[in-house]
Each structure stands twice: as C-alpha cells, then as structure tokens.
Design a protein around this nucleic acid. Structure first.
Length: 829
RNA sequence: GCCUGGGUGGUGGAACUGGUAGACACCCGGGACUUAAAAUCCCGUUGCCGCAAGGCAGUGCGGGUUCGAUUCCCGCCCCAGGCACCA
C-alpha cells in the first residue's frame, strides 16, 4: 500500500488507556450469579503486596486472564477475582525501617500494585477484591479457629519447633526448606515452645485418598503431596525388655523380616530410657552419649547424613516371635517423632541397620531369599531390601514375603503383642507465629478456667494500633500489656489474651471461598453462593506452592465442609502450575541483577506486547526464558496487524456478500481461517498451550497478508479477507485485549466483548488436496500432490511412476506397499 | 539414594494415537527502500557433499521392535525440581 506509512506503529498508550477506562467505567467484568449460564471460576494465586509486581505475576495473571476471557467468549459466566495475601513479615520490617505502621506500608503497596494490574488489562471483578489483613476478612478466620477448637481440630502442645532466629518466629515443617526458612533462607533452629496446632493429620487419610479425584492436577504435584503425606502400613509390636516389666513398642513396614531381628534401636529422646538406664553398668557414659546425639540432631545440617552411631544400653529385649534375646542400642538415626521412636533392626534387609551392624559387629541373619538365591549373612556386602521367600522364620518359612506380612501381623494380633498400624509422615500444622502483623489467635488464658475462646460477639480481635511505652508500632503482641491484659469471659477474673498470631498460610487457605461473597458481614461464607461457584474450575500459580498452600487449602476445604460452610471436598478441580520466569539461565533475582521490571516493559511496549510475549515464548507449565528481542518480535507482530488494518480499512469495512462460486484463492484463505479456528480452540482446550495457539494465528496472518499482496496478483474476495481478519482479532482478543478491542471497534463499530468465540466449519476446514509423502523402505524419496479423497490404488501408481522413486526401485522387486491415508505411501523393496 | 519431569538447529520452542523432524518466532546472512540510519518489506537460514537435480547424516549415548521410531521397549549418561536416616 502507501509507502509513507509502511513503518507506522500503533499508539498502545492511547489505546490501552482508553480500553482500561472503558472496562472500568462499564464494569465490564463485574460478575453476579446467573442461572442461565454455566459458571466458570478461574483463579490465580493472589500476590503478597510486596511493593510492585514482578515478571512471575505478569506471567501468572496473563495466563489466567486468557482463560477468563476465552471462557467468557465461550458463553460461560466467569468469576475472576483478585485480592491480596496481605499479612506477613516484610510489612513489619518495612515499618521498622520507615518508623511507620505495617498497615500503612501494606495498603500503599496494594494501591500501587492494583494500578499495575489494571495497566495489564486484566479482566478482574474488582468489586470482589479482598485484603486478608482487613478485619472484615480475618474476623471470620478467628471464628473458624474457635469452631475448630470446639470441634477438637485445634490443640496446644509444647514441642520442639522450627525456630527462625532472623524472622523471630516458628515455622511449620512444610515451611522449612533444606533446613532453612522458606522466607529468609536462614538456618532453622530447634526450640521447645508452646504453640497451637491444626490437626491436619486427622485428615491425612482423606487428603491422600482424594488425590485420586484430582485428575485435573499435574501428576507431579499429586505425587509430591502423596509423598509428603507419606502413608506407611505395617505392624506395631511390643518387644519385652528382658527381666523387666517395660516393653518397647516398635513400628515396622516389614513384619516379614521379624525373624531376622538381631538388635533393637531406640531414639535418644525416648522416654523409656529414663526407666531403663538407672542401675546399668556405664550409665554416665550412656547419658553423655545421649546428650551428644541430641545436640548433634539439633544442628540439623542440610548436608550429608551424619555417620551412624550408637551405644549399647546394657539391656536386652526378647523377640516375641522366637524368644530370641537381642541387645538394645541407642542409635542416632532413630527419630522420636516418627512411628514409636524405636525400631527393630534387621541388618540383612535394611540398609541403615546393615551399616550399623557392620560398624558394631552385630549379627546379620538373612530371612528373605530372593528368587533362586541363598543369602549368607557374613558374605553380604549390602542389605537385600527386595521381596523373596522367607527362610529361618519358624512356621512362616517358605512363604512369599508379601503373604508373610499379613500372616505375621495376624499372629501378633492373635498372641496380643502387636497390631496392624498405619502411620504418616505428615505432621500436624503448627500455626503459632510470634509476630505482630498477622491474624490474632482469638483465645484467652485464665488461671482458674483454663483456655477459653473469645466470645463470638467480641470478634474480631484486632491488632492494637497504640504503642506501649518503649515499643515500636509493630512489636509482637506478647510485648504489649495493653493488648494481652483482659478478663476471663467465664469467671470475669483477670486473664491474658493469646499473643500469637496465625501463620499467614491460614488466610490463603480459604480466600477462594470468600471471593464468592466478599462483603458479607453476617457470616464468613454464603452457602448458596459458595456452592454455586465452588469448586474453582481452574487454579493457576507457581509450583513452589505444590505442598504448602495447596495442601493447606485442601485441608481447610474439608474442615469448612465439616463445619457446614462448604459442600465440596476439594477446592481446585484443575490446577495449572506455571514455570518460572528466568533470564540468562537463572531465576530473576536482585542478587543476580537479572531482574526485568514489568513496569518498564509496559511503558516501552504496552501491556499487550508484554502479555503476548509471555504467552508465546513457552507453554505455561515450562520455565520461560525472558528475551528482550523476543519482546520486539511480539511487538512487531501486533504492529503488522495494525498496519494491515490501516492499509485495508476500505475493503475490510465494505464487504458485499460473495457470490456462490468461490475462486481457488478464496477457498484457500477461507479454509485456512477455519483450520486456524480449530487449531487455536484445540490448543487452548487441551492444555492451554497458548504458544502454539499464537503461532497458528501468526500463520493465518502470514497467509492473509500474502493473499492480499497486489504485486502477486492474488485476488481474494474481500469477504474472505475480512473473515480472516476478524478471526485473527477474535482469536487473539483473550491475549491482547486492548488492541483487539480497538481494531474491532474500527472495523465493526461495536464491542468485541459481545462477540462469541468463533466456530469452525469442518467442511470449510477440510483439505482438498494433500501432500502425500512417498517413502522407499521408510526413507522419504518424493512428495505427491493428490486429491484428499484419492483411492489407494491410483495413489500407489502415482508413487511408483514418480521419477525419483523410480530411480530407487528400478530393477528391484516391490515386496509390499503401505498406504497411510492422507499421509504417505511406503514402498518396500 | 528414592520419586517426578526433561534432553530436538546458533536461541525460545513445534511435531495428533508410530507416519514429511525443525511449524511459529528470535538471532544471523543477503537484498530492496533511504543521502544515510532506524523502522518496514523481500529472500535465505540443521550439518556435510553438490552448479543443480539430489544424496548422506541427524531429535543425549548404545542396543532392540517395526515397512517406518523424537514417539514404543531394554541398558546407560546428563540436567532441573521434590523428598531425604520416615523403620
């Protein structure tokens, strides 16, 4: 067209401002329940309001927004909310630094980040926005706490907890990553402390079993959760201590090896030791050893396993199965927290026991023989842990190990010294945090009445705004007498409020339910609305939450169901875990200096370009390598479409209906248009592979611009040009909504929001002629153009007479020919 | 060590259910336009051989099944993530 505007670019700033204002003024994405449409709840993990959005957010929310916009176009009533995971330590640190209040910092960040999200053109229903630090939100969490406590799902205990010195607070097991704090990466120390626990272990079995239902989750996440829950089935069995009344209870998953027990190992912290050690031969030495082990255990190194060591207690146990007398050792590798804190040792069939036995010269007696082999204790160089046939096992000798397990458990039950037992690796969720900026635990300690919940009408328990003498505005609650001094709701006597606040993972465990009724003041959850919208149809976020947040949310869903608030068993039907955004091969981080600020990019290229690139560069589940030149490419593509619309506005707006007979050029473009609709739809429906969806649209656009090049004398009826152009805009509109809205308005004088996702016409999409590959002995030798419906025989004849094919088969006998319809012919010689 | 993924051009990535390997894009090279540059447009772009037609090799490595393997099977190597004395 006219060369003067050949390099013209669209004004993204004007266009994006215009449409963001339009969507906001018209409340385009406001959602209410609508019985006439199928509901679709798409949710992205809400952000911590750290200050400004980063590339991970851009990616996460771009993906979610495409899903939301796509589903709207497919006719769903889409719920797509956004909010803030607003409690947490960084707010306290910032407040300390600026001598202000955590709330001030947090709300300022929220305002700034909300604006940043708005500038990305994300289609949220902002009316439903929630911030978890708002008492209107966390008051309901306090109510849940009280109801859970009343139901016995919450308890207090003093245990060794994971203490992070730098955060000055306790961490849950899940929050310790390789011995370090999940947030600040500093080493975690053990510390004895009183704290509040959620009995997530009561739900262990259901959390495990329901993983089966999560067919819309990545297998990887399901596996990680299954391993985290760590169910083991086996036998608990009592081994009497020789000459004493005490019995040592052990748990084993290998009851079939019980005749191979040659010693016992017990944890250094085991309470029975206090009864067993006094009066022994070298008690002092043993005590010293115990102290040493306990200190070493506390120095949880995140490197290699410490060397196994132990000490003989001087006591013996009796194996109840064969009456054998076996020595009792204290061993550093036995965990007090798992099973019973004591294990039967079968060195022939357990690697740890083997190592220990070799070190201390203990017997190794094989009792499981692998197929066709006879193991001999002295000559073993490692434990045999596989299945086999029992040997040296009394009445059980000769049984296969799997069968023997059941028979041996039954024997223990019959004789009253054992029982079948299931144990889990999962521990209860410690939620006490010794911090200020969190939801206060709504409990009161009274010396005469014990622990009492805050009366419901007194909720919420809010954070104190005032400053106690000598304290800063965010010092923890246990340093604030004006907060904790109270009276007992039962006896009215002096009492002390609980000063721990809740783990911030509690807030994020139920926010998806609150979005269905965010402003409700009478109750935490509107049952009708919740059951209308839940479960979340598509949840999207980073894999880093595979265990923490996703397990807690599943747990909370079941608890809230049991408390009568929810009617679902699982919160998230489909889960998409998007990969990280990386640059120069590693995760973007300040310390690496490879951070790309979305703010700068949006300013330079516009939101649509940034969105398009982050969707195009990789499929959502894979890591995305940020590439500045790739962003240029995305921008270039949008501008090419823009110039096409500019240069062809005449023919794109005035399109008389075409005649009945389509020219070949018409049919080709029309076909390509419908093939593209099919490809894009399938790419989105199957697995949200927007990268291939976008490349399909790029191909269509390339075909479209080639087909209309005057120099090539291609004449396509404007009607099909317009069909292709409109299709390009509709298919891209979930990804680059501002641009497509603007172009659509120019061409169609209407709002693209009201247009449905295009349907493909299977007939139009069908190929007329195909390229058929001809192979000779599986190697490609030629390609043929043939009608799509060609029969096998004429196709084979065509193949055999092809020049190049003939060269390869000349003088040789054709043994057979294979025809794959619409694909290839293979001639075997 | 165990459990997941994954390994394809210079780069990001495509390839339905065993059937044209490298779509789409980035980079790069060449050209057009321009006084010049940018922008834009066109052509080329897995390697090797060849003027070309075409040929040979090629999806981490080694085997196998098959008319045909990136795809299925067996044995290795490497990378990423998760778990890690869980009895």
């Amino acid at each position: 067209m006219t060369t003067s505007q050949s390099g013209k670019k669209y004004e993204f700033k004007t266009i994006e401002d215009k449409w963001q204002r339009f969507w906001s003024e018209n409340a385009t994405y406001r959602t209410t329940e609508d019985a006439t449409k199928e509901k679709y709840y798409v949710l992205e993990m809400f952000p911590y309001p750290s200050g400004k959005i980063h590339m991970g957010h851009v990616r996460n929310y771009s993906i979610g927004d495409v899903v939301a916009r796509y589903k709207r176009m497919r006719g769903y009533n889409v719920l797509h909310p956004m909010g803030w995971d607003a409690f947490g330590l960084p707010a306290e640190n910032a407040a300390q630094k600026n001598n202000s209040h955590p709330a001030t910092w947090t709300y300022a960040n929220i305002d700034y980040m909300r604006e940043q999200l708005r500038q990305l053109g994300l289609s949220y229903d902002w009316q439903r926005e929630i911030a978890t630090c708002n008492p209107g939100y966390f008051r309901w969490e306090q109510l849940f706490f009280i109801e859970m406590w009343e139901k016995g799902i919450i308890y207090q205990k003093v245990t060794t907890v994971n203490w992070c010195e730098s955060c000055q607070t306790v961490l849950a097991n899940e929050q310790v990553i390789e011995g370090c704090c999940w947030r600040c990466d500093q080493p975690v120390m053990p510390r004895k402390m009183n704290g509040w626990f959620f009995k997530i272990t009561d739900y262990a079995e259901e959390l495990l079993a329901d993983l089966e239902k999560l067919t819309g989750w990545p297998e990887k996440v399901v596996t990680m959760q299954r391993n985290w829950i760590g169910k083991s089935t086996g036998l608990t069995c009592d081994f009497p201590v020789d000459g004493r009344d005490e019995k040592i209870s052990i748990f084993t998953t290998r009851p079939d090896t019980i005749f191979g027990v040659t010693f016992m190992s017990i944890a250094a912290e085991h309470p029975l030791l206090d009864a067993l050690l006094p009066g022994g031969e070298n008690e002092d030495e043993i005590r010293k050893f115990i102290d040493q082990i306990i200190t070493e255990k506390q120095r949880k190194s995140n490197e290699e396993e410490p060397e196994k060591k132990g000490i003989f207690t001087g006591r013996y146990c009796i194996n109840p199965f064969n009456g054998k007398k076996i020595p009792l050792y204290i061993a550093n590798f036995v965990l007090m927290e798992y099973g019973t804190g004591a294990v039967m040792a079968v060195p022939a069939h357990d690697e740890r026991d083997f190592e220990f036995a070799r070190k201390y010269g203990l017997d190794i007696i094989p009792v499981i023989m692998p197929e066709g082999m006879t193991l001999i204790g002295e000559s073993l160089d490692q434990a045999y842990t596989g299945p086999g046939t029992l040997a040296n096992s009394g009445d059980f000798t000769g049984l296969p190990s799997e069968e023997a397990k059941g028979r041996i458990i039954a024997h223990a039950v019959d004789h009253g010294f054992g029982a079948p037992h299931v144990t889990y690796r999962l521990r209860d969720w410690g939620i006490s945090r010794q911090r200020y900026w969190g939801a206060p635990i709504p409990m009161i300690h009274c010396d005469s009445c014990g622990v009492q919940p805050v009366p419901r009408e007194q909720l919420p328990v809010v954070l104190p705004e005032d400053v106690d003498s000598g304290n800063s505005r965010c010092d923890p609650l246990h340093q604030r007498p004006s907060f904790y001094t109270t009276t007992c709701p039962v006896c009215n006597g002096p009492a002390r409020r609980e000063t721990d606040t809740m783990d911030t993972f509690v807030e994020s465990s139920w926010y998806f339910a609150r979005y269905t009724c965010p402003r409700l003041t009478e109750a935490p959850i509107d049952r009708d609305k919740a059951s209308h919208w839940l479960p979340v149809d598509q949840y999207i976020g980073g894999v880093e939450h595979a265990i923490l947040h996703l397990l807690y949310s599943r747990f909370f869903t079941k608890v809230l169901r049991d408390l009568g608030y929810l009617t679902i068993d699982e919160p998230f039907t489909n889960l998409l875990t998007q990969g990280m955004v990386i640059k120069d091969g590693s995760k973007m981080s300040k310390s690496k200096g490879n951070v790309v600020d979305p703010h700068d990019l949006v300013a330079e290229y516009g939101a649509d370009t940034v969105r398009l690139f982050s969707l195009f560069a990789a499929p959502p589940e894979k890591d995305l390598e940020w590439n500045a030149q790739g962003v240029e490419g995305a921008s270039r593509f949008i501008n090419r479409i823009y110039r096409f619309v500019e240069n062809n506005s005449q023919s794109l707006t005035n399109t008389p209906s075409p005649g009945q007979v389509l020219s070949e050029a018409d049919r080709n473009l029309h076909r390509r248009t419908h093939q593209t609709i099919r490809r894009v739809t399938e790419n989105i429906e199957n697995n949200f592979h927007f990268n291939t969806a976008i490349s399909a649209v790029m191909e269509l656009f390339n075909v479209l611009s080639n087909a209309t090049e005057k120099e090539k004398r291609n004449t396509v009826d404007p009607y099909y040009v317009k069909e292709a152009m409109n299709t390009v805009l509709l298919l891209l509109s979930p990804m680059i909504p501002h641009f497509c809205s603007e172009m659509w308005e120019r061409l169609e004088r209407g709002s693209i929001e009201t247009v449905s996702w295009p349907q493909w016409d299977a007939e139009a999409a069908a190929e007329e002629r195909l390229t058929i590959v001809v192979q000779v002995n599986g190697k490609v030798r030629s390609r043929l153009e043939a009608p799509a419906d060609i029969e096998d025989r004429p196709l084979i004849d065509m193949a055999l007479t092809d020049d190049n094919v003939a060269r390869f088969i000349s003088g040789k006998e054709v043994k057979k020919t294979i025809v794959v319809k619409k694909k290839l012919v293979n001639i075997v010689i």
